[in-house]
């Protein structure tokens, strides 16, 4: 198992966000996590690269218990994990090229020429050439999102964590991002966890889909199993029907 969350609990003050969440992701697999807003999807993703520590439970990544790592061993593991943030989280004082190069500068032995080359390749992969010297504030929301994606894939990570990678994108860009996620998985064998609200995207890119509800994994299955699920909470989300959710509660 390459990513494993075991009975993870996390609370912020009185608010219990994760209440025993368990998830296993095989090497090379793409798992989408769906669920309503405020259910803790981003919180669980931040546990996977150690940005948050669980109150209880275990988080394993690449054979390391990341929730117990500190300092250099933690950074070592993080270098294998690319993270695509919901709102890109680009460094606004840096150009796009500098943003994409940031992670590469932490890889020992990479020359400036290697870094420039990898920056160019990453930007080309997300169809974002010619913006190297622009600042994030000069780009549209969709372009910023793609730049965030480029920054993550430039590291050529073994694992990619996507926090709503397609939210707010136009249909063409959305399909391009889906293709990229598939390509990262198929050609490079990257293991991915994708947080999404977009069911069409989830069906297209996922090997498995997990529904996070009330802090736990409510249902997990292949896209077809989720599409055909009889669980009213899953159906409410998938079909966008609030009435089913009311019935279920």
């Amino acid at each position: 198992m390459s990513i494993e969350l075991k009975d993870v609990h996390k609370a912020f003050g009185e608010k219990r966000v994760l209440r025993g969440f368990t998830l296993s992701v095989e090497r090379g697999e793409t798992v989408s996590v769906i669920g309503g807003s405020g259910q803790g999807k981003s919180t669980l993703l931040k546990h996977v690269n150690g940005l948050l520590k669980p109150d209880a439970g275990e988080v394993w990544v690449d054979g390391q218990r990341i929730d117990q790592l500190e300092g250099e061993p933690l950074y070592e593991t993080r270098r294998k994990v690319g993270y695509v943030f919901q709102f890109a989280a680009l460094f606004d004082s840096m150009t796009i090229a500098e943003n994409v190069a940031m992670g590469l500068r932490r890889i020992p032995g990479l020359s400036e020429a290697d870094i420039a080359d990898r920056v160019r390749t990453a930007l080309a992969r997300v169809d974002l050439e010619g913006v190297d010297e622009q600042y994030p504030s000069e780009l549209s929301g969709g372009m910023r999102k793609r730049a965030g994606l480029a920054r993550a894939i430039a590291l050529e990570p073994a694992y990619l964590l996507y926090d709503e990678p397609t939210t707010g994108l136009d249909p063409v860009t959305l399909s391009m991002v889906d293709e990229l996620i598939l390509r990262m998985s198929d050609r490079l064998g990257v293991t991915s966890v994708v947080i999404t609200h977009d069911m069409e995207s989830a069906y297209r890119i996922s090997d498995r889909i997990v529904m996070l509800h009330e802090g736990r994994a409510r249902v997990a299955g292949t896209p077809d199993e989720i599409r055909d699920s009889a669980d009213p909470v899953v159906r409410a989300f998938v079909e966008g029907r609030a009435d089913l959710l009311e019935e279920a509660s």
Binding site: K46, N49, G50, L51, Y75, E76, R78, R79, V81, G82, Y83, F85, Q86, F87, A89, L90, F91, D92, M102, G103, R106, R151, L155
Partner: peptide, 13 residues
């Protein structure tokens, strides 16, 4: 704006 989280995720302290 999660830029500090981004720094951490890129293996910076």
């Amino acid at each position: 704006t999660e830029q500090i989280d981004a720094l951490e995720s890129l293996a910076y302290d």
